[in-house]
Nucleic acid binder design. Structure first.
Length: 160
DNA sequence: GCCAACGTTGGC
DNA sequence: GCCAACGTTGGC
């Protein structure tokens, strides 16, 4: 991890797909994204980018681990799968609408960096996009903010 | 292009 | 279950 490392945050509901699922599988295709803004962020991802894994819609929500982008610009297969929840009738094979990236597991944090912690620590920051009402499931994280998130995690860890 | 109605996300 | 903050759809 260097100063040039690029960071993102991706959300998943742990009862759908959790950090433990990723830990077991090692890698996964981050498919099923059906929001154009989130998709466009995924298109900007590069191999080697680091991604915070955020557990959403659970108690308590927060950042739970870290993963790394290992493949980019992959066609999301679920859009053509009639049995999938993510099937998209309007997407054509010759012009797929949705794509995704492949990520690998890096680590599960010993302590959760909860949304509460994040909101308290980054009250003043306009750069962190995790905010009440922000429903984006994929977002960029400025490098300096990512560093602060990681040091906040160490702070929490050492205070336990 | 406007906008009302509706759907979704996700914290609380 | 409530609701804020969006995004999407479709009539016009």
């Amino acid at each position: 991890m260097t100063e040039k490392t690029r960071f993102w945050l991706m959300k998943s509901e742990p009862n759908a797909y959790s950090i433990d699922n990723l830990k077991n599988e090692g890698t996964t295709l981050w498919d099923g994204i059906r929001n154009y803004q989130a998709r466009n962020f995924m298109r900007e991802m590069q191999i080697g980018d680091q991604v915070f894994f955020y557990h959403s819609n659970c108690k308590p929500p927060g950042i739970i681990g870290l993963m790394e982008v290992i493949e980019t610009n992959l066609i999301d297969p679920t859009q053509f799968d009639r049995k999938s929840n993510y099937f998209d009738q309007k997407s054509k094979k010759e012009n797929p609408r949705w794509d995704c990236v492949k990520v690998k597991y890096l680590k599960k944090f010993e302590e959760l960096l909860s949304l509460k912690d994040i909101n308290e620590s980054f009250k003043e920051s306009e750069l962190l996009l995790i905010r009440k009402g922000n429903r984006l499931s994929i977002m960029p994280i400025m490098t300096n903010i990512a560093m602060e998130l990681l040091s906040k995690l160490n702070e929490i860890k050492s205070s336990k």
